[in-house]
């Protein structure tokens, strides 16, 4: 089986960019201190501590000191968070669509991103009478539609919206049809 044509799990771009920038910042700070030390020493064999006086006070601290413990806890927690982000697969962002490949295609794959699912549900809900505005959020298995209406007795509208979205989803051959949940917000027009 060749790799799938679309990646359905997040690529962790944002955490990677943040960590890369932090690495760059550490590199810049280290380089700055090193150049300052070489500049004050005037030769290549100068010690790093001559460029930055903080190392002396660092050496005077004990391992049990509160700042050391705090820093260790923070570093360990950050490491744990990064590890979890790296290992956990993350939420699926695609939903599969059932198709059959014609003979001139060996492998045919059709997918919908969950964002498309949400706008599809919002569009279906928007066509119902009595709805003034719609928001929809979706993951791979369920869609939540929130609509607002000025009508006080809105049970009927809620049922209509539910039916409209469910029917729209049923008309599409998903591998697994997402469940629909409808919420109402009453708002004066």
């Amino acid at each position: 089986m060749s790799p799938r044509l679309f990646r359905s799990r997040p690529a962790r771009v944002v955490p990677a960019v943040i960590v890369a920038i932090v690495i760059l910042a550490i590199a810049a700070a280290l380089g700055w201190v090193a150049i300052a030390a070489i500049a004050t020493g005037g030769s290549g064999d100068s010690a790093l501590s001559s460029g930055f006086s903080g190392f002396a006070s660092l050496g005077a601290m004990t391992w049990g000191a509160p700042p050391v413990i705090t820093a260790a806890v923070i570093i360990a927690l950050l490491g744990l968070i990064l590890l979890v982000i790296g290992i956990s697969p993350g939420a699926k962002r695609n939903i599969g669509y059932r198709t059959e490949a014609p003979e001139h295609i060996e492998r045919f794959e059709v997918i919908l991103p969950t964002s498309a699912l949400a706008s599809l549900a919002a569009a279906a809900a928007d066509s119902v009478d009595g709805v003034s505005s719609v928001r929809a959020a979706s993951n791979a298995s369920s869609t939540i539609v929130t609509f607002s209406t000025p009508v006080r007795d809105n049970d009927g509208i809620r049922r209509d919206v539910d039916a409209a979205v469910t029917q729209r989803f049923a008309s599409i051959a998903f591998n697994r049809t997402p469940t629909v949940k409808v919420r109402v917000q009453r708002r004066q027009a």
Binding site: A11, R12, V13, P15, A16, V19, A20, I23, W63, V68, I69, A71, A72, V73, I74, I75, A76, L77, L78, G79, L80, I81, L82, L83, V84, I85, G86, I87
Partner: peptide
């Protein structure tokens, strides 16, 4: 690459933090 990098950085910081603690 992102996941590998995050796991490596995560393991290093987790190890360093736990060692210091």
């Amino acid at each position: 690459a992102n996941r590998t990098g995050l796991i490596i950085v995560g393991l290093i910081s987790l190890g360093a933090g736990f060692a210091a603690l």
